[in-house]
Simulated assay, not measured.
Amino acid sequence: MEPLVETVTEDDRWAAFGLAGLADRAAAGVLAALDLPRVGFTLAVLGCDDARIAALNGDFRQKDKPTNVLSWPSEERGAEFVGEAPAPPEPGTPDDPESLGDIAIAWETCMAEALAQQKPAEDHVTHLLVHGVLHLLGYDHVEDEDAALMEGLEVRILARLGVSDPY
Score class of each variant (00 low, 15 high):
residue 97 P to Q: 07
residue 95 D to L: 11
residue 22 L to T: 12
residue 32 A to I: 06
residue 91 P to T: 02
residue 4 L to I: 07
residue 43 L to R: 04
residue 6 E to M: 06
residue 68 N to F: 04
residue 8 V to K: 03
residue 152 G to E: 11
residue 10 E to H: 07
residue 67 T to C: 13
residue 130 V to W: 01
residue 80 E to W: 09
residue 82 V to W: 09
residue 120 P to R: 15
residue 59 D to C: 09
residue 165 D to K: 02
residue 45 V to G: 01
residue 73 P to I: 10
residue 21 G to D: 13
residue 141 H to W: 08
residue 56 L to N: 03
residue 32 A to E: 14
residue 29 G to Q: 04
residue 59 D to I: 10
residue 157 I to A: 00
residue 112 A to C: 06
residue 120 P to H: 15
residue 160 R to C: 09
residue 102 D to L: 08
residue 153 L to D: 07
residue 145 E to L: 13
residue 93 T to G: 11
residue 42 T to F: 07
residue 46 L to K: 02
residue 1 M to P: 11
residue 15 A to F: 01
residue 129 L to V: 02
residue 84 E to P: 08
residue 27 A to K: 09
residue 87 A to L: 15
residue 64 D to A: 14
residue 37 P to T: 13
residue 142 V to A: 14
residue 138 G to K: 08
residue 124 H to F: 12
residue 158 L to D: 00
residue 29 G to P: 00
residue 166 P to T: 06
residue 150 M to H: 09
residue 10 E to L: 13
residue 29 G to C: 06
residue 66 P to V: 02
residue 70 L to E: 02
residue 105 I to Y: 01
residue 112 A to W: 04
residue 129 L to N: 02
residue 133 V to W: 02
residue 113 E to R: 11
residue 156 R to D: 15
residue 47 G to C: 04
residue 37 P to N: 07
residue 54 A to F: 00
residue 8 V to P: 02
residue 60 F to P: 03
residue 144 D to I: 10
residue 133 V to I: 07
residue 120 P to C: 08
residue 138 G to F: 08
residue 97 P to H: 06
residue 51 A to S: 09
residue 104 A to D: 00
residue 69 V to T: 12
residue 119 K to E: 14
residue 30 V to M: 07
residue 143 E to Y: 10
residue 147 A to N: 12
residue 108 E to V: 08
residue 149 L to G: 05
residue 25 R to E: 15
residue 71 S to L: 00
residue 106 A to M: 03
residue 97 P to K: 05
residue 158 L to Y: 01
residue 54 A to H: 02
residue 16 A to V: 09
residue 156 R to A: 15
residue 41 F to Q: 04
residue 44 A to F: 03
residue 70 L to I: 10
residue 35 D to M: 09
residue 145 E to A: 15
residue 136 L to K: 07
residue 93 T to Y: 03
residue 86 P to Q: 11
residue 43 L to D: 07
residue 159 A to Y: 03
residue 8 V to N: 04
residue 12 D to R: 10
residue 160 R to Q: 14
residue 136 L to F: 06
